[in-house]
């Protein structure tokens, strides 16, 4: 690639890259833009700078309540699905077990089933079993959805490091459990963090399952959807969206940093 080309004389790929990024991010950038706009209506021209929508957001208990619900579910789902994903990844990559293929297949099914089908089936099942809808049922559905993602991340991590590391742990006198804590866990830690972030994000912005399986207590995406019908509520939702966007940006940057650190540590195990 010609890196000497001055920036004011871009080649075709450069233009393509700029167009691509603009196309992807411009709509997203409207979110923070209009969240500072001094008007109820999402339309140009802009009316002036204001922080009142952020103020409204903070003074709006339902929106904060929905946010807290989403964070709670997201955290619990992220932790549980990462634990399950780790156990499954360890089983799949380290043991010769009967029925491995079908088991992995069953765990992965939620990846390919449309969420709306999953949502309806769970709804039918729960009503048949007379289980009332609540945040708990939403969390359960999110768990079902997140475990395969977590497992995918962790399986690749487990396969990526040499099995003889664990044998060395056993050989040096630690039992299977301590070998897991002293060898496996620190080595797969970047994968565990990646899994936590990924599953939290999936749960946090999941709409279909949450819509079908929640009752009065709403998660944030469901709340936002329902507030779209009331134009007066919209700007403070935009403010919330912008705040979440910033938060995710920070989290993703942090995750990438962790991942790169993990990759650098990995490169040492090669010869």
């Amino acid at each position: 690639m010609n890196t000497n080309r001055p920036w004011w004389r871009p080649d075709g790929f450069y233009i393509y890259a700029v167009l691509y990024l603009t196309f992807i991010y411009l709509p997203v950038l409207f979110l923070p833009l209009f969240s500072f706009n001094n008007s109820k209506y999402i339309a140009f021209p802009l009316k002036g700078f204001t922080l009142k929508w952020y103020e409204a957001m903070i003074n709006n208990p339902p929106i904060l309540n929905a946010l807290m619900n989403s964070i709670k579910i997201g955290l619990i789902v992220a932790i549980l699905s990462t634990i399950f994903g780790l156990l499954a990844a360890k089983a799949v990559t380290r043991y010769r077990m009967p029925g491995r293929g079908p088991v992995v297949g069953f765990i992965m099914i939620p990846l390919v089933i449309p969420e709306i089908i999953l949502g309806i089936s769970l709804l039918i099942l729960l009503s048949l079993a007379n289980i009332p809808l609540s945040l708990l049922t939403v969390g359960f559905a999110h768990l079902l959805l997140c475990v395969p993602f977590s497992m995918l991340v962790l399986v690749s991590r487990m396969e990526g490091f040499d099995k003889s590391m664990e044998e060395a742990g056993l050989d040096l006198g630690e039992n299977a459990w301590m070998t897991f804590w002293r060898v496996t866990f620190p080595i797969v830690l970047p994968g565990i963090i990646a899994s936590l972030l990924l599953t939290f994000t999936i749960s946090f912005d999941e709409f279909v399952l949450a819509f079908f399986l929640s009752s009065i207590e709403q998660t944030l995406p469901v709340y936002i959807w329902s507030s779209l019908r009331f134009p007066s509520k919209l700007p403070s939702t935009l403010a919330l969206g912008a705040a979440i966007f910033m938060a995710s940006f920070i989290v993703v940057t942090f995750a990438e940093w962790i991942r790169r650190r993990g990759v650098r540590l990995d490169s040492t195990s090669g010869i």
Partner: peptide, 30 residues
């Protein structure tokens, strides 16, 4: 007896040096 109870130790083909520990940590592991 399981591997961790045997009075033998192994030098692995690819050495299996723990990447998350320094030299001292590796040697002190056992």
């Amino acid at each position: 007896s399981p591997p961790n109870r045997r009075p033998v130790n192994m030098v692995f083909q690819n050495y299996a040096i723990f990447p998350h520990l320094d030299v001292r940590g590796n040697i002190a592991f056992g």
